[in-house]
Design a protein around this nucleic acid. Sequence first.
DNA 1: TAGTGGTCTAGACCACATA
DNA 2: ATGTGGTCTAGACCACTAC
Lengths: 268, 268
Amino acid sequence: MTATPPPPSESAAPASAPVGAPAASAATPAFSPLYQQIKVLMLQSLQSGEWKPSTAIPSEMDLAARFKVSQGTVRKAIDELAAENLLVRRQGKGTFVATHAEHHVQYRFLKLFPDNGDPNSEGPAQRQIIDCKRLRASTDVARALALRQGDAVLQVRRVLSFAKVPTILEDLWLPGTPFKGLTAERLRDYDGPMYALFETEFGVRMVRAEEKIRAVLPDTEQCALLQVNSQTPLLSVERTAYTYNDTPMEMRRGLYLTDTHYYRNTLN
Amino acid sequence: MTATPPPPSESAAPASAPVGAPAASAATPAFSPLYQQIKVLMLQSLQSGEWKPSTAIPSEMDLAARFKVSQGTVRKAIDELAAENLLVRRQGKGTFVATHAEHHVQYRFLKLFPDNGDPNSEGPAQRQIIDCKRLRASTDVARALALRQGDAVLQVRRVLSFAKVPTILEDLWLPGTPFKGLTAERLRDYDGPMYALFETEFGVRMVRAEEKIRAVLPDTEQCALLQVNSQTPLLSVERTAYTYNDTPMEMRRGLYLTDTHYYRNTLN
DNA sequence: TAGTGGTCTAGACCACATA
DNA sequence: ATGTGGTCTAGACCACTAC
């Protein structure tokens, strides 16, 4: 599609139709500011893989030329994408596609912190893959992943330990098709956040997530894996993670031991 | 203080010193963009009470004239304040000081939602003030509120029920000086969020909060107030709330029953 | 020195709300 | 009809990074 900027001030042409809204299927309000339309185009470049994680996107001037709009309009589109953590600006260097890998802050989505001291002092988490198997989606999982019941999914179970203390037990479900070929070995061998592996190996970038948090008691199997007794209250953290376009790509259920750690949240 | 805008392009004057940074006490980098300085000035107007919650602030043009900068610079300052939920823009009407009162979303900081249906379907929470007493700050409370141990604080205890089911037990501590005159009666009589009462009656506006979340089991007193047994796991939500300038103004500890509700969080 | 993003301005026009 | 915030442009200069 072509972006037609509004005519400059001297022109008396009627308001140009919204860019990218072909004269078909009315009924939708179908108005959106230019920079929003630019944003959609940029999202497509991200989604299609034209711009890959950790690489630089074209400069603001280049994008302005490509879309035939002013630099300021491109800038506003980038501003919003940066606010959503899809892009990262670096003055003097360029604008880069955000990534879960090569980031000083590992585990961007993990909100569990130690009571005393900073996350770095306790060192990296030890990760133990318990299981990784292919099965058919249950009703719950199918709904969360926008699949049909019985569709192929992968289920992974793992334990994270801090300072050798088992602290997190996670079960997670992934849609079978995008993650074809994922095995326990590949998970074990990869050194880095799981979401970084998803990016580099499967081209799936997690962009946003919703969590539902409850307090629960563990069943006997969970007790064994976390080495706690059945009277130890745990945080149940149920997460659905999304890629671009709000497409759900992961369902996860974590049990957090919160006697020496806490889940941190900031309210604005 | 006066804001001196940088000279227009034709002038060859050296870069003007940062506005509002008098030629004293160097050593600080002491550079900040114009719009950041404007933002600081606007924060002062909010903090001083010149602009009160739910009222309109001067228009962008007026502010531009007052600070002697362009409308675009004021706009960028307002953009940031709006992103921080301190201001609310309403097209065609003006820009307003955000408030906890008269808001379609009551309880802006409460992240507990019912499992089935929307928050509105279960109707408003029933609130029961158990206690409101004046006492001396313990070590923990003093640290959280940036007071000295032994300073006067108010302690409030209350229970929130949804559909007549006790669901939240809260203890909260407030610094004695700003909240002088707060009593159980005034809390009971006020119909609306507690933070709205703090705004209108005490001029204290909560702007931001940090929460630490854990899973715990209740003690016998808590069991009685929430009408649960001692084996019911509960969410412990420890909150510190801040006014302008990151000044802590409330410490709160909530116990949430999460069998029919969940704590929702969104990750970006 | 060149290129990038960051700031600032000035002015035009649009969309929305109110009178 | 007027005033508000929202969008868009065009151009200048600054700050940071690399070569």
